[in-house]
Simulated scan of single mutants.
Amino acid sequence: MLPDEARQLLSSEGLALLDRIGGYGSASDVLRISTALRREGHPPDLIAAVLTQARLRQRAAAKFGPFADRMLFTEAGLEQATRLPVAALHAGRYRSAGLTRIGDLGCGIGGDAMAMAAIDLEVVAVDRDEVTAAFAAYNLAPFEGAEVRIGSAEETDLSGIDGVFLDPARRTAGHGGTSRLGPDDWSPSLGFAFGLGDRVPTGVKLAPGMDRELIPDGAEAEWVTIDGDTVELAVWFGALARPGVTRSAVVQSGGATARIDAPADTEDPEPRELGRYLHEPAGSVIRGRLIGDVARRLDAGLVHPGIAYLTGDRPSPDPLAASFEIREVLPLDERGVARTLRSLDIGTLEIKKRGVDIDPAQFRKRLGLRGPGQATLVLTRLGSRRVAIRADRLAPAAAQ
């Protein structure tokens, strides 16, 4: 969005139109709304900006819930914005460390700054993009302790700042994952971001697949999974890093939160024979290489060396691992699996796989299932065999 378009949107006319039209559900709705607004004499550029913003607000509900209806977004800002529950975790860490005035360097549309300001932390939110900073200022307007500045992270005066948060943006677009990015492929660079940790308590939000070799010694690396989606790696320095903890995994699911902390990567458990349950550790547990700690909690072992499935005789009591009750183990033969599932009237099938080169979507399609039943099929290895494990996923409450 260009600055002139943003100014139109931020006008009283633009904000009133945005609140008036609310959301829309289809291309025909867009045409209907656009036609009506043109007939009222509103400028085409303003109509386009309002419709775009209404669409972004609808998308933003997944991250910000009902707060999205009173916020402004850019495409890039929404894509990179921290989900509200995770932003609350960030803010809580700063408060727990006794920090009161935080510099959010590269604040984007202000999601993390909002979470900090909401618990009465003072925030200096900085972004180099004029439009993004303007939208952040709008989003932070309800909070007296929040200030927004236009500028770069590298040039921000940190006088009076006792804690820093950075969410570096990828300079190179189009990467499917971040593990191939080097320390200079970010803005600001990881060298700058991590270097701040030597001067002031600092948190750096990164993609969860970032190369682990880039994590500095002595920092706390925390991976976060929300409702099955591993959303970030946060690296904490100084007072924000907890003593004796360098690896951490946080999992939120269905309103429950669980975490596991460790002084270092933990060794994987030994493989064992299948028990009553199969467990799938959360992505943050796997990324943090903390499977061994979860296995000890569950008295479980690996299904197969190098494959991140666990097995044991009791279900997981928390969302650090999803549990499946094993019903039978079938050879990984497509026709045989199809016959078994059809005989059970299975029509809804969740397919999970590790250690086998199979496309679950294509595999499901070829099975041609019909029926009212549902099941989970885990495609993996047991020793030298490729197997299909039919199981029932346990709901979190049932696993407690």
Rank of each mutant, 00 (worst) to 15 (best):
R327W: 09
E273Q: 14
L158I: 10
D261Y: 00
L78K: 06
L379K: 08
R297Q: 13
P142Y: 08
D293W: 00
R128F: 07
L10P: 00
H175K: 15
I47E: 10
P315M: 11
A141Q: 04
E13Q: 12
L51T: 07
G255P: 04
M114Q: 08
A256H: 11
A48E: 15
A397N: 08
A399W: 02
I150T: 08
L121W: 01
C107R: 08
F64P: 05
V124G: 02
L31V: 13
P183D: 11
I291Y: 04
L290E: 12
L369F: 02
G177K: 14
R296K: 15
Y94H: 03
V200I: 15
L31S: 13
R171M: 12
A397R: 11
L214P: 06
V250F: 07
M1C: 11
T246W: 00
E267D: 15
G218V: 07
Q252I: 14
E328S: 00
V245I: 15
L330Q: 02
I358D: 02
D345Q: 13
A193C: 12
A262F: 00
A91S: 11
P315I: 10
D217F: 00
T100L: 10
R272G: 05
G306S: 01
S152A: 14
E232T: 12
Q362G: 15
R38L: 14
P208D: 03
R199N: 06
P317H: 02
A375D: 02
D357H: 07
A173C: 00
A49S: 14
R314Q: 13
Y277H: 01
A91L: 10
P317A: 01
S152I: 03
G177N: 12
P208E: 04
R93W: 10
Q8K: 13
R101P: 04
A54G: 00
V235Y: 03
V30L: 13
L379V: 03
A68N: 05
D120G: 09
V245F: 03
G255V: 03
G14R: 04
P263N: 11
V224Q: 01
V329P: 01
R370S: 12
T202M: 06
I102L: 08
G77Y: 03
R180N: 09
I286L: 10
R128E: 14
L349D: 12
A76W: 09
V131E: 02
R180C: 07
R180Y: 09
D227C: 08
E232I: 13
R247L: 11
L382K: 03
D318H: 14
L240W: 06
G163Q: 05
Q374F: 11
